Amino acid sequence: TTYKLILNGKTLKGETTTEAVDAETAERVFKEYAKKNGVDGEWTYDDATKTFTSTE
């Protein structure tokens, strides 16, 4: 399943996707990605669109 991440950081904005077996796995991948890029925001998830959003 393809999951999408929308980053709305103070210094980094953008989108990326990952293939994962479930939302929990995708969330771990995306949170590590955000951390590596210095984004520490509030997380939301929309199951209908398989989209995570992190907003600082």
Results as ranks from 00 to 15, higher is better:
T16V: 15
T25G: 06
E42I: 15
T53P: 00
V39E: 04
T16Q: 09
T18C: 15
G38K: 06
A20Y: 02
E15N: 07
K4Q: 04
T44I: 09
E42D: 13
L12C: 15
T44Y: 10
E42H: 13
S54F: 15
L5I: 03
T1N: 12
T11N: 14
K50R: 11
K35H: 10
D46E: 06
K10R: 13
T51L: 04
S54L: 15
V29H: 13
Y3L: 02
E15P: 03
T17H: 08
T55D: 09
T11K: 10
A48H: 10
T11A: 11
K31V: 06
N8H: 10
L7S: 02
K35C: 11
Y45D: 00
T25W: 07
N8K: 11
K4G: 02
I6E: 04
K4S: 05
A20F: 05
A26K: 00
T17M: 10
Y3P: 02
G41C: 06
T16R: 10
A26I: 01
T1A: 10
T55N: 08
G38V: 03
E19K: 13
T53N: 05
T55K: 07
E56K: 04
D47K: 08
S54Q: 08
N37M: 15
L12H: 14
E42Y: 13
G9S: 07
E32Q: 08
K10E: 10
K10G: 09
K13H: 11
E24H: 10
F52K: 01
Y3F: 12
V39F: 15
E27D: 05
V39H: 10
Y33V: 05
A26M: 01
G38R: 05
A23E: 07
T1Y: 13
G38C: 08
A23T: 10
K13F: 11
G38Q: 07
Y3D: 02
L7C: 06
A23L: 10
V29P: 01
N37V: 15
F52S: 00
E42L: 12
Y45P: 00
E32N: 06
E15H: 10
N8C: 14
E56N: 05
R28W: 08
A48F: 11
V29Q: 08
G38N: 10
T11D: 12
Y33S: 01
E24P: 09
V29K: 07
T17C: 12
S54W: 15
T44K: 09
K10I: 15
A20T: 05
E56Q: 09
R28S: 09
E56V: 07
T53V: 08
E42P: 04
T16Y: 15
L5M: 04
D40T: 12
E56Y: 09
L12Q: 09
N8M: 11
T18E: 04
G41Q: 04
K36D: 12
G9F: 15
K35Q: 12
E27T: 03
L5D: 02
E27S: 08
A23P: 12
A26T: 01
A26F: 00
A26H: 00
Y3T: 02
L7F: 12
T49N: 08
E24T: 10
E24M: 12
S54I: 15
K50M: 07
L12N: 08
E32P: 00
T1K: 10
E24F: 09
T11E: 11
T17P: 01
G41L: 07
A20N: 03
E24W: 09
T2I: 14
N37T: 08
D47S: 12
I6A: 03
G9T: 09
